[in-house]
Nucleic acid binder design. Structure first.
Length: 427
RNA sequence: GCGGGCGUCGCCAAGUGGUUAAGGCAGCGGCUUGUGGCGCCGCCAUUCGGGGGUUCGAAUCCCCUCGCUCGCCCCA
């Protein structure tokens, strides 16, 4: 076997699934457009420092999952592992924020060097929303609502929204100090993974899946207790906002999120039908990030939605939202004059809006009609030298029992057009 | 990075030490040299992910390796 394969964790999306992907993307575009959110496209490759500074040196994503290399100019470059840092960088670089708040969305491939498993690839795709310059709790609610409505419109069932608050950056810093002190005091009783995280990422210890650690943690200081009055108030408003919209949610005090830049509201939308990688959409507030990346202090909230996981859910659904593409006409031809007339005919039909496949194989009519039948086309047009000479084509109804007709191009377009693919009985 | 499962034709799949590697789908050719769907006939893996080894003999046993997959971790 010397044939070449795609890189591990890099997946080809074959024609049988791209229709579903397009449906998801089109639905997302529609929802963003309705919510007055504009698209932004940023490079897949950025200076490594952007992610190191933005996401946090201590996170797993930056620490061990990035595709990083030196380019020919000896600069350290990284394939983007997520979208937010790039969007914020672009907004700062082009002075977007001095023009007022920005409502932006992005989509495309992200790269993380991880062990692939269900719902996790090394190149994967996200669609994300970033509301930059919005501080009000109502913007948190709006951001969540946009994601929730998009998923509902796509027909994804069985989803659960979990929310938490991480408090202000000050709250978080203060709590972090308390927590580290407490963890140090109980170091001996922690599992090895948690011990290693005491300083690197103490908040994640709270989410440990080791039962003994969880039991011990019952006595640890809680983030909720460390929250300032304003932070409490703020979180209450977010919850009330969700309730007012009738969006169901659960409080999850252990929901911490992996990236450093989050503060206040953090949320995840998960599905029980996804296996180990259950998060379909995750996000939160990141009021400190813009400043951290060199901009002026700007509050912001955003989320990212994993398309592979979403498509996985959609393809598990009993009812497929996307019908296979339908062909209106299959053009078969034979003989020098017939073959010469076939492409012009196909082209005119296409210009008239029909979906047309042209058989240029030169095979016998029998073969071509067999392929016409298998193509799923509604009609077949046959052009031999006789038809070409008369300026007509023989139109066959492949899905009904209507008699063959000899028609000129305009007549053919009229008849086929009246029976657009998949609709209605034979003429 | 760490565990578990798996790897026979484009897809599905039988075969689990003995001489020629079932079958189905798809594909190709023919019956039907200008007419599809159905049917019938034929073709389609000197080879079982790759490499070593054991054996008179291996797709079947052993080792290594690659890949896929599920989970841990992490996250979308």
């Amino acid at each position: 076997m010397s044939s070449l394969q795609s890189l591990r964790g890099m997946v080809d999306l074959l024609p049988e699934v791209t229709g579903l992907w397009q449906h998801v993307e089109a639905t997302a575009r529609l929802h963003f457009q309705r919510a007055a959110v504009q698209e932004i496209r940023t490079p897949l490759l950025e200076v490594t420092e952007l992610f190191a500074r933005g996401i946090g040196e201590a996170t797993d994503v930056v620490g061990k999952e990035m595709y990083t290399f030196l380019d020919r100019g000896e600069r350290s470059c990284t394939l983007r592992p997520e979208g937010t840092a790039s969007v914020v960088r672009a907004a700062i670089q082009h002075g977007l924020l001095s023009q007022g708040p920005q409502r932006l969305w992005y989509g495309g491939p992200m790269f993380r060097y991880e062990r692939p498993q269900a719902g996790r690839q090394r190149q994967f795709h996200q669609i994300g929303l970033e509301l930059l310059g919005f501080a009000d709790p109502r913007s948190d609610v709006e951001a969540i609502a946009i994601a929730w409505d998009l998923l509902a419109d796509l027909g994804v069932g069985g989803l659960a929204l979990e929310i938490n608050t991480l408090g202000s950056p000050d709250d978080r810093l203060r709590y972090r100090g308390e927590l580290v002190a407490w963890l140090e005091a109980h170091r001996e009783q922690l599992d090895p993974d948690s011990q290693a995280r005491i300083h690197a990422n103490p908040l994640r210890v709270l989410d440990s899946k080791v039962p003994a650690t969880q039991a011990l943690l019952a006595g640890a200081p809680t983030l909720a207790d460390a929250l300032s009055g304003e932070s409490h108030e703020r979180f209450a408003r977010v919850r009330l906002g969700l309730e007012a919209l009738g969006i169901p949610f659960e409080l999850n005090p252990r929901l911490v999120r992996g990236l450093d830049y989050y503060s206040h509201t953090a949320f995840e939308i998960t599905s029980s039908q996804l296996g180990a990688q259950a998060t379909v959409c995750g996000g939160g507030r990141y009021d400190g990030l813009v400043q951290q990346l060199g901009g002026s202090p700007t509050p912001a909230i955003g989320w990212a939605l994993g398309l592979e996981r979403l498509v996985l859910l959609l393809s598990q659904a009993e009812q497929q939202p996307v019908a296979p593409p339908a062909l209106d006409l299959y053009v078969a031809s034979r003989g020098e004059a017939g073959e010469a007339a076939a492409l012009p005919l196909a082209r005119r039909c296409r210009a008239a809006g029909l979906a047309v496949e042209l058989d240029a194989s030169g095979a016998a009519f029998g073969k071509q009609l067999r392929r016409a039948d298998r193509s799923g086309a509604r009609f077949a047009a046959v052009i031999g030298d006789m038809e070409a000479g008369e300026g007509v084509a023989l139109l066959k109804d492949l899905r009904g029992d209507a008699a063959e007709q000899r028609l000129g191009v305009d007549g053919l377009i009229a008849v086929v057009g009246a029976r657009r693919a998949g609709e209605g009985p034979a003429a």
